[in-house]
């Protein structure tokens, strides 16, 4: 089947008029930067473009509820951001989207809530910010005159990892951050001091390895 036939087939199945689907088709193909024309055969497209066509087929009729199974799988960062934009477009139009992913980066970027499963059991669920806050603000990104040894010496510091700029300090108590702030800014301005909850990536690892 051609790209146009496939997409209009799914659109019509979901109650959209063929003419309307065809009128919107080029816009969706542009939005997802699909390399190919609407008259091309789907089997002649690359795997990535086939994936995009399948996504467009699922989204073009603006469903109220959509489930996407690993939609970001195999997508490079550019295409992943195009998909994120597509999902946001649906969300803004009032759709509810459930999708599965192993990439915490895009989960953090677009999700409102998450459920994490391990061996079929729910190990985490809720709004993203609330989940991160559960773990406390125990991650400190700092660029300051303090050396690695000086940072390690603070009580409550679990580890100090050099970054490309500055250090990532893991704390066992968020309050330690105050002491480090006081010491770091003792001589004045510092370029970076960011105390946050662990990233979803870290939380994922903690839960999987637990």
């Amino acid at each position: 089947m051609t790209v146009a036939d496939q997409i209009s087939f799914f659109a019509e199945l979901h109650g959209m008029k063929r003419a309307e689907a065809m009128a919107n088709l080029d816009q969706w193909l542009d939005q997802f930067q699909v390399k190919g024309k609407s008259s091309d055969l789907i089997k002649d497209l690359s795997k990535g473009n086939q994936q995009k066509v399948q996504l467009i087929a699922a989204m073009i009729h603006m469903p109220k509820f959509i489930i996407l199974d690993e939609p970001f799988s195999g997508l490079d960062p550019v295409n992943a951001s195009l998909l994120e934009a597509g999902i946001r477009r649906l969300r803004d139009a009032g759709s509810a989207i459930i999708y599965s992913s192993h990439d915490m980066g895009n989960v953090e970027a677009i999700s409102d809530q998450l459920v994490m499963l391990k061996n079929g059991e729910v190990v985490l669920s809720g709004k993203l910010d609330a989940i991160r806050e559960q773990f406390g603000q125990t991650r400190l990104h700092i660029q300051s005159p303090l050396t690695q040894q000086e940072l390690q010496a603070f009580p409550g510091v679990v580890s100090v990892t050099p970054q490309s700029r500055g250090f990532l300090v893991k704390l066992n108590d968020p309050q330690v951050g105050r002491d480090i702030f006081a010491a770091a800014t003792h001589q004045g301005y510092i370029p970076e001091f960011s105390q946050q909850a662990p990233s979803l990536d870290e939380i994922f690892r903690m839960k999987v390895e637990a």
Binding site: F10, L13, H14, G15, Q54, A57, A58
Partner: peptide, 10 residues
Amino acid sequence: RIEESILTAI
């Protein structure tokens, strides 16, 4: 695996 997509509508 396109069957699941089709059967959401019909």
